[in-house]
Every structure is written in C-alpha cells, then in structure tokens.
Design a binder for these strands. Sequence first.
DNA 1: CGTCTTTGACCCGCGC
DNA 2: GCGCGGGTCAAAGACG
Length: 335
Amino acid sequence: MSSDEKNNPQHDYDPFQGFNRSTFPFFDENYPSIYNRAAAPTPAAIQAFDPSYMSFTDCFNGGSIIDYNSFSRVVDVSCSSSDVVSHMDDSTATNTKKIGVSAENSVGDDNHNQNHNISEENPSTPNYSVSCSSKEDEDSSNGKKEKKPKGPEDHGDDRSKKVNKATKKEKEKKEPRFAFLTKSEIDNLEDGYRWRKYGQKAVKNSPYPRSYYRCTSPKCGVKKRVERSFQDPSVVITTYEGKHNHHIPTTLRGHGGAGMFSPSIMSSSASMVPGLPHEFLSHFLPSSSNNPAGNTSSMHCQTLSPHQQQQQQLQVPDYGSLQDLVSSFSRNQVP
DNA sequence: CGTCTTTGACCCGCGC
DNA sequence: GCGCGGGTCAAAGACG
C-alpha cells in the first residue's frame, strides 16, 4: 500500500455520493422490495461472495468502501486519473492519481497478488463491485472535439486548448462513474439501454481489449467501458459514466434485448429514477430463474442463446444478502 | 436502408 | 520535447 493510500482513508467515502439515496430503493429498509427473501441471509451466504473480489461484502460491510484504486488492484485494470474514486478536491485528485499509477504497477506486488486468486469453486456466485467517481465528460461527449485534419492549417488552437483545459477542471467533479465487476462470459452486458460501440483499444498489460460504448439516445452522453480482468477472464469490468437523461428505450434490438431483466421491473425503476441509479439497480435485478415476479422475464429468456442464459445465471446474486448488505451499509453511513 | 461494429488514425495528457 | 497510453473519431463494412 502506498503512503498516498494511507493518507486517503476510505472509511468516509460514500460510493453513492452524489445520488439521492431515495433513488436507491434498497437503501430504504422498509422498501417493499420484490427481492425480499423469506429468511435473512446466513453468514455462509454472505461469505459465498468470493472474498478474492471486492464484492458487495467488501463494499458495504463495516463501512469498508471500494474505490477505483482498490478496484483496479483487485481486477488488475489500470485506471486513469479520472477513474479514481473519492470525494476529493483537485489537490487530492492529484494524490489519487498517483495511487492509480501505483495500482497499475502493483501487478507484481505479492501482497496484492495474494488476493488475486479468484475462486473457481463458486461460479454461480456472482461477485460485484461498485464504485463511483466524479468526472467531467460533457466536454468530450457534448462539446466534443472536432477531428482536425493534420496539416499546416491545424494551428492557432492553443487558445481553445487552454479553454478546454479550464472547463475540464470545472466539470471534473460532476460526472458520476460506477464500475461493476460481473462474472460473465459476455462482455457487453445488457442493461436495458441501447449502446453504440465507438471504439476499442488494447489495454496495456492485458490481452483483452477495452470497448467503449455510448448511449444511442440523442443528447444522452452516458458512456460505458467494458473490459475483462486479465487476472480472471471470467470477470467483466463495466464502467458507467454519466447519467441517462431518458428512460429505458421500450424497443430494443433483437437477440434478447433487455432479456436479462423483467420489463416491468425496469420500467418501474426507470420511471422512478431515470439515469444511473436505475442502471445501478438494473445490474442487480434478478433473472428469470431467481425472480419471484419473473414471468415476463422468463418470456424474454426464451430468446436468449444458451450462452446468454448461462451468463444470465451467473449474473444472479443473492439479492437478500445484497439488500441486507446495502441496508447495513446504509445504516452505518447515513447520519 | 438504417443501425451497429470494426478499425486505423488522430488527439491529448502525462511522465520521463 | 518526446514517447506512451488512453480515449475518441469517422469511414468502411456487416447485418437484418
């Protein structure tokens, strides 16, 4: 652990900072969740979360909160400065940036690698991590840079560059970012929204490329990045960036579309909270096999390929445990 | 024909 | 200043 990390205690970090907690139904202990189970989760059930991940257990128990740095260490993904998660001002952002670098360099760190043994014994036990950060991004999505032809005419833009730099700093604090670890064989996990892939890049120190998606809805600048952990290729890291300013599209393209989730569930949550909180929720919605309210989703399931269905099963967490963990977190964190 | 993916090039920030 | 790596653009092609 770097000294920077020591100086940046995470115990007071709130991964849901920036969101009204009421937008997360499971923060409310009295919320009549359809995921409520008959029995409280057993300790064994909680421990079923693979400890080698930054799981929800890690996230919420005892106020030990994941940030993107921990996240990057766990899954061995590099994270840019903007990925770093913390409620921080610019000065601390500089610090965490260094943390991010050290995280990337920590691949050979024994202390870290010891925790990288990802169990294969519970393939049906999905492991999730979530983190968020604030970041500008509207400058690239809205006021996106013009692609300028390289040549003699491409000069005299230094002024605009500086302006961009300044506005970037200002916007730096706004865009929320959530990262999810999902054990899945499918890279691009369906979340109900429509995404258009706009780029793919090879990731340093990883054989797996990183894909860049943008929400296809006009004026919605939400982006997501999808990549695999090279430590455990079965783990997909999905990073959402920004908030949707629209509801989930009612018509989705073929091959299952929103098949992972019940449309009734999606629409209800979407109408409550369009945007990222819904997305966050959607990642933990049950599939047909575990969804007590799930006739509709089972209907969608029929359109899934066996591959997708397998992935779907891998996606299903123990929602009772999950909810309890989050509630526990809520109790610990909310004044 | 519209939508989406692929992919090489480009831009930019950062560390050395 | 230079090189590297991450992020984005946009043309071309694939697909339904």
